[in-house]
Design a protein around this nucleic acid. Sequence first.
DNA 1: CTGTTAGCGCCTTCAC
DNA 2: GTGAAGGCGCTAACAG
Lengths: 334, 334
Amino acid sequence: MPVTIRDVAKAAGVSITTVSRALNGYSDVGEKTRRKVTRIAEELNYRPSAVARSLVMNQTRTVGLLVSELTKERAGHYFMFQVLYGMHDRLAELGYDLILVSTTTARQRLVSYLDFCMERRLDGVIVMGIRLDDPYIQEVVDSPLPSVVIDLPLLSDHCGYVMTDNVHGAKLVIRHLAGRGHRKIGFVNGHSQAAVSRDRKRGYEEGLLQAGLGYDDTQVHEADFTLQGGADGLKHLLQCHPDMTAVFFASDLMAIGGLQYARELGIRSPEELAIVGYDDIELAEFSTPRLTTIRQKRSEMGMRAAEMVVAMMKDHATPQGVLLAPELVVRDTT
Amino acid sequence: MPVTIRDVAKAAGVSITTVSRALNGYSDVGEKTRRKVTRIAEELNYRPSAVARSLVMNQTRTVGLLVSELTKERAGHYFMFQVLYGMHDRLAELGYDLILVSTTTARQRLVSYLDFCMERRLDGVIVMGIRLDDPYIQEVVDSPLPSVVIDLPLLSDHCGYVMTDNVHGAKLVIRHLAGRGHRKIGFVNGHSQAAVSRDRKRGYEEGLLQAGLGYDDTQVHEADFTLQGGADGLKHLLQCHPDMTAVFFASDLMAIGGLQYARELGIRSPEELAIVGYDDIELAEFSTPRLTTIRQKRSEMGMRAAEMVVAMMKDHATPQGVLLAPELVVRDTT
DNA sequence: CTGTTAGCGCCTTCAC
DNA sequence: GTGAAGGCGCTAACAG
């Protein structure tokens, strides 16, 4: 059994109250007493119980991270890890801890993850990698538990969001390609149950129109963000449109898949086919040829999400929709 | 404020104790009472407070995940994500939650992470991605807190480990290459502060000797597990040994970096240079040409770690050293 | 079978 | 400046 506040009090010859006040930096404690208590606490290696404190303070200083793509499906982690990094780091700075709440656990099948959050008395939640058709997402948004969603524009009294301006990002791509003279530009999108797919497609469409190029539905292929999906997507597009000179992929992973498929066919990039990805994962800079892409500020996304939940939790801040600016990174595939 | 056990008791017209017993499935409760309590609890949407329960039961049912590579350094996540997946999944099945404890947070600079675990009253810890020279790792190993370390062979009264048999894995590689007639095989290792590097190097060395090939220190280059490191490593080796016909990289990421560097130089693989990686990350199957590598059962590593801590926590099981079998996956680069 | 009593470790009025 | 008392929500003996 760890040493408790009572042990410290006894050893210091003061009351429990005094120990509590001394250690928590209250001003109404004699300087001598404070020093003594501090010293004893250190000697005894006293660690105040966060559990007991949570109970009485009615807050756990813990936020849950809801992820559904924490699964075998390996597409998301290139993107998510960096977000997680920024988020966790900022949360720690602000004095909050992060607990994982996955959709795909045995337990979650019985208890919705909102229930999980209630039981653990989490102070807030950050949601990431959740699909539009997720059965529980609405429950979270509607609940009074402060929440921030990443990559899903859900806004309510207790729910904000952080995402990249994907419409703009896709437009940047098309403008770039059109500027290089491409007239026939294909698009391999992610699955339809991601808000980012919807936005990127809209950007693609609007971009084409703005560039004076017509939009043609058959030049769009819906894949699933994976390497294989990218390869398949390109294959499909090339079958319908052998004269295509550029393809925009809704993720770097898919673009790399496409790049590899193209190489197998002996199609050279960028000479015969320009290729653009999305995300700017580390590999983008390291593929051969190096991939032109749209950079998402991933760790900033995490940080912003962290800051927002914390603001909502402690200052009752109004949730907001944060749209981060994308950035075109031109490399060798265009 | 959430509804408490007292609310349920009042509404059901029974004592708090009875509610507790009814809901926790004790046998000494009347069937009618139980049903009534259960119904009321459901109607009121009662969620027992895990915090209060933790306090009185003196266990949080939470394990901490200590990671230090949850940082900007992006090398580890290809490997770690899958481990995390298996670990979290199994933990959830066993009724435990996972909380993130990173080394690189502002707070951790003041408080060692063991202190963090004590404050949060974690039941156990899993450690991953920690370097041999980490200042706090020993503290964790020595502490009475049940812990399991991944990829570091630390064994003590309260600390077990899970890792792949890296010596054997590296030997498999050399045997394979030697079997294909390679006589001069280079090795690009990871950084020296990883136990796996040490083991893979030993396997490389022993493998060479067993194959009747001499070991030559200048054929080994120490890198850092990154793409760039792999490229640099290969470059360096080729400078010293232009006649080298095969190179073994201590990670797939490095191998892919090497592969790309080779392509830039116009060196074809496997014809002119055989290349083997380690880990079997998803990209290995998708590089061009597809990478021969050693598969590590990553999600199983996570599961085993989870099972071990849980066993130690609840059954006071003796910690063990688990060595998982590696597996050679032959693809196109050899 | 059910209720009463006593804490778990800590913070917070309220007296002194 | 310091201490005593009460309670956060729950479980665990111990009586009946």
